[in-house]
Design a protein around this nucleic acid. Structure first.
Lengths: 245, 245
DNA sequence: GTCTATATGTGGATAGAC
DNA sequence: GTCTATCCACATATAGAC
């Protein structure tokens, strides 16, 4: 036992460091040597504890997503129990889904903004094993929330709701990813209060709360926007009964 | 001249293939050998024509973004000329900004959906040289559209407008990236009509138009959503005069 | 402009001592 | 569980013949 600087053991130190480096550089651009070097563990430790680099990435996400999935389902269960048999309000559903995620950004023990950024950046990674992994991890929760939205918005075509769920997920992912051009061009963005990628100032937790306050009205406005007039000349899946409120 | 299957020369064939492979696998996971192999050119050709792999990526984007930037500025110029001195409507500005991009997806000679997906996926790449490149490419256009939105929404705090521009960019980037979990879980997404990543069916062009019809109302609804009540206890940048329409 | 051959580095993974 | 040493595939890039 050469150095016990925290009560983290080797395994957790690797996970913490990998989480940060994957966030900063992306999966492909992060080498095992960068991870083990920064974590001050031996190069062979990753393969011993996790088996492979791919398995390490999965474990980095699994320890966070298991909490997030459970919490999202419990919050929705609670809301639906309170509502009796009546449909929830869209704002409640969005608050449960996105609010739960954004609360992770306020809590360092749940990964904080580091994990939120990692998630936002990795959700658009084209690697096959990553897409497959996320599909499995998200399936149940997405299905539950999708059906809650169907019940909450019975007059909106279900295909339209799914599209808007796409758009909402994208708005949030991109915002928390914080890699976009806007914050370079405008000097305004996630990092106007937090430091650069790696630097985790104490303002980072307040950041998630402020982002939530900005984001939720936007998402709700988009979700409840008037339906498009689908006049597509090649319209092979015309919607029924467009609605304007 | 062993094989002149199209009127593309070597340089253009490399750009076309690199565009597709970077889209399918990401920058890091795409090797020069994959590119030169698929383009049926010699391995050394990339370095001869472009200098490096990084420079190749920049050139892949530059040939598309030079058109996009010019078009976005011209469309905005035209709208502002027609309007005389009066502010534009938010819907006009969004149509100019996002509609111009989505029209690229309908035109194979402008890159089609392949380029759109590549753009959506690469905008969240954390690599320093990529972020720096995009910042330079987008600066002028973002600045022009940002100021147009400021004029169109004089009662909305400018910081709020910039945030919502973030969210709108994210919603669109993520939707066109088409890597997200939703389309795996729900079976509904960009690829419900188009093939998988690589396959470019004839439906791909109609796809962009249909996406635009879905996306624009969502974005407009988000942009015009009621402003958040900023009651942040640590509120160090309180907004002035929240508005509710 | 195109090719072959190669320089030079780094990647993930593992065998086997301790 | 941790370490050293190493295997081997593959990366980008280039030198120099044609």
């Amino acid at each position: 036992m050469p150095d016990q600087r925290t009560n983290h053991d080797t395994r957790d130190r690797i996970l913490d460091v990998a989480e940060r480096l994957f966030m900063e550089h992306g999966y492909e651009a992060t080498s095992m040597r960068m991870i083990t070097g920064a974590a001050e563990v031996n190069l062979a430790a990753v393969n011993y504890h996790f088996g492979s680099k791919e398995a390490l990435l999965r474990e980095v996400f699994r320890r966070r997503l298991s909490w997030l999935n459970r919490e999202r389902l419990e919050v929705l269960d609670r809301l639906e129990a309170q509502a009796g048999g009546t449909p929830l309000k869209p704002s409640q559903i969005l608050e449960a889904f996105f609010g739960t995620l954004l609360r992770m950004g306020e809590d360092e023990s749940l990964g904080g903004m580091t994990f939120l950024r990692l998630l936002g950046r990795t959700l658009t990674d084209p690697a096959e094993f990553i897409r497959h992994f996320f599909a499995g991890e998200y399936a149940e929760v997405i299905d539950r929330y999708k059906r809650a939205l169907f019940r909450a918005l019975p007059d909106v075509p279900q295909a339209e709701i799914v599209w808007r769920l796409h758009f909402m997920l994208g708005a949030m992912s991109y915002a928390i990813a914080g890699t976009d051009v806007l914050q370079v061009v405008t000097g305004c963005g996630l990092s106007d209060l937090a430091g650069e990628n790696g630097a985790q100032g104490p303002g980072d937790t307040a950041l998630a709360r402020r982002l939530a306050q900005r984001l939720m009205p936007f998402l709700l406005g988009g979700l409840r926007a008037p339906l498009p007039q689908l006049l597509d000349p090649s319209g092979n899946q015309q919607e029924s009964s467009p609605k304007t409120a």
